[in-house]
Design a protein around this nucleic acid. Structure first.
Length: 464
RNA sequence: GCGCCCGUAGCUCAGUCGGAUAGAGCAUCAGAUUCCUAAUCUGGGGGCCACAGGUUCGAAUCCUGUCGGGCGCACCA
């Protein structure tokens, strides 16, 4: 697929060629950067089909005024048979009118290329790793995860369309305290499945019903041999099995949205392979990790604050408020400590990294970007890395916010929403606002067959 | 107290690596059609682009500050 698969791109190339010719003739200094030059449809259609700011952007470097330079560009462009008119307007815009032949040719190629129309080879030869969702494997997906999932998937598709090789990746946080809680919760449900009256789910364990079938499956598989054993004997096994069950739930939820990741990476495996240790060693050698006292957050010292010495990453060197611990005082890795090693691992097989995170993690962007920059540069191959934040979605029903509480078990699952309004409506709605702006998701409005629901317009047009 | 995101027409939002009179849909108003259960067509009105400074030939767009809304702020992920 060539880059000139659309008429706009084709004419942008013609403009560029004209500029290159002028450069060859000495009208423009050799090597003049042309990346500011735009070729796009003007706001006012009476100005023509396309307009370029080339003369205005480049006049200074050509040591002439915009209108004079525009004259020379117009001369070149007029020689092209598909250019029916080229005029200088205003301060130095060049307005182009394209011939009928050009438009007809474009229509033919739209018909011929169908869904491939507009593809580009821009990213050809480059692999981009897009990590998104990465919800904790402790329960089904809820609506809090939904926007990031949709945005990440759409971005991945766009990158593919632009010619990149894309790896859609999910990071399984199966090594922290949350999955320990999951293991204990699953054990409780296991005992329940074997007939024990477990009463209220104790504070600190996951109360959700979705663990009942997990307990039943464990009971069926293992019998009653782990009912009264010490935690040490069943803990690791229950954790592994429960995480596996949760990941099955999550993959099923994602499938409802039409999302399928290529790679699922386990934090536990990453740690077992000693990746964080390797990263720590390198960072210590380069004085980017040191043992130091953790400072209280600025302007807000918690009452029970106790200074501790921990291995800290020097994120302040990269604009962060304070240096960040990579290990906890019990010696285990912090989320960040493992995450930086994880990103380094991803960087080994990609040319660029993108993470899609919820806005509630905005505070941790600086440290991970800093760590990735340090590690990839240190390895001799600095990898572009972007963290894209998606803002919160407010769920509304009958105009009232839907309150979600994990403890009360009132969180709205993704599966419920997809069942209620449909996959396409969810995906479309999640993309109707830029990711960095908050949005409302009103159950009634998104399915309303009315003039102010864009979803409906698209469905209507598509059905026609 | 600090950091990040947002603040554009009555409503929901585009436009923000600075560029030609600030755009769309809905709502509203006026015509058209009178086919119809309209999700019909055409046109108009409607904006100190939150506010105040600054940079620039030129600012919704960049910088500083203020106000308003959201998110976050120890070894939780």
């Amino acid at each position: 697929m060539s880059e000139h698969s659309t008429i706009h791109a084709a004419f942008a190339a013609k403009v560029d060629a004209a500029l290159a010719a002028l450069e060859a003739e000495g009208e423009l200094p050799a090597g003049t950067p042309r990346n500011n030059v735009t070729v796009e449809p003007p706001r006012d259609p009476s100005h023509g089909d396309l307009a370029t700011n080339a003369a205005m952007v480049l006049a200074k470097q050509a040591k002439t005024n915009p209108r004079e330079l525009a004259g020379k560009i117009v001369e070149k462009l007029s020689a092209d048979p598909t250019v029916e008119g080229a005029e200088i307007a205003g301060p130095g815009f060049i307005n182009l009118r394209l011939s009928d032949v050009a438009w007809r040719g474009e229509l033919a190629s739209i018909a011929a290329l169908a869904a491939d129309y507009g593809k580009s080879a821009m990213g050809s030869g480059r692999t981009v790793n897009v990590e998104y969702v990465s919800a904790n494997p402790t329960g089904p997906m809820h609506m809090g995860h939904c926007r990031g999932a949709v945005v990440g998937d759409a971005l991945a598709s766009l990158l593919e369309f632009a010619g990149h090789k894309v790896v859609r990746e999910y990071y399984i946080n199966d090594a922290g305290g949350q999955v320990d809680v999951l293991a204990r919760s699953a054990h409780l449900r296991y005992r329940e499945a074997l007939g024990e009256d477990i009463g209220e789910i104790p504070e600190g364990l996951y109360p959700g019903d979705y663990l009942i079938p997990v307990g039943e499956a464990l009971a069926k598989e293992l019998g009653d041999s782990f009912v009264s054993k010490d935690e040490a004997e069943w803990f690791a096994m229950f954790r592994t099995k429960a995480v596996a069950a949760m990941m099955e739930l999550i993959r099923a939820d994602l499938a409802l949205l039409g999302i399928a990741h290529d790679v699922f990476s386990s934090e536990a495996e990453l740690q077992a392979a000693g990746k964080p240790e390797a990263a720590e060693q390198w960072l210590r050698q380069h004085d980017l990790v040191y043992d130091g006292m953790l400072e209280a957050p600025k302007g807000k010292t918690p009452e029970d604050w106790e200074p501790v010495e921990l291995p800290l990453f020097r994120s302040t060197r990269f604009g962060d408020d304070q240096d960040r611990p990579i290990r906890k005082s019990d010696g285990n890795w912090t989320y960040f400590g493992a995450d930086l090693a994880y990103h380094f691992q991803k960087a080994e097989s990609a040319d660029a990294l993108v993470d899609i995170w919820g806005a509630d993690h905005a505070g941790t962007v600086k440290r991970i970007k800093a760590a990735v920059a340090a590690l990839t540069q240190g390895a001799g191959r600095l990898i572009p890395f972007e963290v894209k934040l998606v803002q919160m979605v407010q769920l509304l029903r009958d105009g009232e916010p839907v309150k979600m509480s994990k403890r009360a078990g009132t969180f709205v699952t993704l599966a419920d929403v997809v069942r209620e309004v449909g996959k396409d409506v969810v995906r479309f709605t999640m993309l109707t606002r830029k990711p960095e702006a908050q949005m409302d998701f009103d159950f009634a409005k998104v399915v309303e067959a009315s003039k102010d629901n864009p979803v409906f317009y698209v469905q209507y047009a598509h059905a026609g």
